[in-house]
Design a protein around this nucleic acid. Structure first.
Lengths: 206, 206, 206, 206
DNA sequence: TATGAATGAGAGTTCATTCAT
DNA sequence: GATGAATGAACTCTCATTCAT
């Protein structure tokens, strides 16, 4: 897990449904306009209450962001950890990670979009230190898999591993910016096509 | 009187040096913190003058952003148009577009990063309508090349063309977020590796 | 529970009291210092809150001005229209218009003073187009009355009608700059003396 | 000394023509937009130089205003003093003051308009104390003339003298807001009609 | 739980003014 | 005499946040 002590509820949990709905609204607006450009009033409007009333549910605008991002990362790592613990071969591990990633994009589309845009400049702040930690774990998992694959002659050895890693990472996650759930392609189908392209290339083999 | 031309500045124009330097500073800060999260005072600090003084050179914070983005796109399209006018085969066109793209990333690293983060929600505003227009031209150029390639059996026919387009587009441009000029790889080398991966895949051929 | 109606406020509406009080304060300061020379902080100080808090009640400084001026003109025209619809003879119409005018000055002293000082250069802006329109209706009403009076031999024919109109108009309204409500003269008394002077002249008749 | 006329007086008057022209420009803009709403840049634009360059000619924006107003008042009082020293009867004095006033409006149209709009709130500042002093002298001259006229049975005794004074004063000076030099009426003609109206009334005598 | 009204810090921007060239 | 660039104070306005009701 991310190691984040996300015990936000000072008391019990007043009304988890409402919280979740409000967070979903906030995430959508954050994703569409950017965190800084989003006003708390805008979120409240969208949710049908007044700006001040949000503070009954959340400590601050930042804590909403925090909850959105850490909630997403917690689920992501639950999925990844299962994959990584399965002891698959490199190519199968990669396939499983990619598929799992597209599933997370399907379920946390807005959180992923926010993560893409904001995580870089948030990582400095102590509160969001877990973003940097997550990024490191992420790199270890993917880059490690790639390197094992090269060693086992599953992946090409003539490519710079870090470059490859970045290309993989970015293409997968950037998909959140255009992915529409319920659209033409299910996440598993997108994963399949993506893997086919990435593993075998788009050129016709001679 | 000697024949020396009366050059107040070293260059011809009044003083575009300063403008350019200020825009470069602004672009760097915008890229690092996001446009909305960047204060005009921060830019001024970084540039070594007072916030108000920026307004001697620029109409507004937004006009700085505008100039950064449109300057980048102008150069980008100059490069692209040359490529597209050359009448190359699909695969060569794709290679040239990719190489040109990495060259632009090399020269307009911050502008590209800003474009990635902000263009989506800026495109609504009339002032930035050219972003949407550019995006359409971009899609026509890349997607068209891909489709021609499929027709001429240079590219695989079993992949969804739009999906492929998005993967290509995003991987190329996201590189701006980690690219460091003067680093280990020159833009042409990155382009070469990228093309090798994308065209032939990362898996070892059996 | 008794049958007492649930009146949160003494009045019916949510709280237009505050708005009205704030506008009255703003009008007084605008009248004393001029619109441009008045800072929003000054108004807030005078009203006993912070500058930013005014924006909970009003969109902008300009919208306060707008509301002050249009509120005044609405009432003015309600009064004028009643007079004009009464079908009086020219002299009686003139007397009624003058009396009504001094009554409006009595009730909207600051708004009138602002109107005098600012309307001329405001009329250009689209938002204040109604000022120019009001000025035209005003001229039609007064000048028309004068001309009817000349035709019916109630008013002298040897005076330039437009010149006379301007003198009448200006003297009446400039009164707002020195008028103090609750002073020595009630509006009707001022109107009476004014009419006596304007109709019969200040010279002793031989 | 030689007869060379244009010695560069650093201390004395550097170039009185330019000063006068710049002041005329400033006065026109002040009159049109109001003193506070007028930027120094706007004046400079209108005069064809840069804002900073005005400070070679004038100490400050305020000193331009000062010079405009005091220049006007100096000439006004030169005229008034001549009239008052002539020892005319009350009615003739009033006629001469009115005629002189319209002449000043003809020559100092913009200064008069500025005076009308700004003198009230300027009078507080020490630098503009002469405005209040001028206002007092003005009242003494006009009100005194009226009172002498009442005593000598030239003017009606049944009118409140202060009220009459205010009406006279305001109508005369407000004319500056619509007066256009070179228009249909010369200042003397306006004065004649104004006096006819004010002395004999606009009603037809029975 | 939610509202209405306010706070207070800080944002982008304007502008009179200065001064080396 | 004029310019170009900068200053610094002040301005209008925004917004996250608070709190009595």
């Amino acid at each position: 897990m991310t190691g984040v002590p996300n015990s936000k509820q000072t008391a019990a949990n007043p009304a988890p449904e409402r919280r979740r709905a409000l967070l979903a609204t906030a995430a959508e607006v954050f994703a569409a306009q950017g965190y800084d450009a989003t006003t708390v009033r805008r979120i409240a409007d969208e949710a049908g209450l007044l700006a001040g009333s949000l503070y009954y549910h959340f400590d601050s605008k930042e804590s909403m962001l925090d909850e959105i991002l850490s909630g997403f990362l917690d689920e992501l790592w639950a999925g990844y950890d299962t994959v990584l613990a399965a002891g698959l071969a490199p190519r199968e591990t990669l396939e499983a990670l990619v598929t799992e990633s597209f599933r997370e994009i399907d379920r946390h589309r807005f959180a992923v979009a926010i993560y893409q845009k904001e995580s870089h400049h948030l990582a400095d702040r102590p509160r969001f230190a877990y973003l940097a930690e997550s990024r490191r774990r992420f790199e270890r998992a993917w880059l490690g898999t790639l390197e094992r694959g090269v060693a086992q002659r599953a992946f090409r050895a003539d490519l710079d591993a870090r470059l490859t890693y970045r290309f993989l990472r970015d293409t997968v996650w950037v998909a959140a910016s255009w992915y529409r759930p319920g659209g033409a392609h299910a996440p598993e189908e997108i994963a399949r096509q993506y893997l086919s392209m990435v593993l075998d290339g788009i050129a016709v083999r001679e």
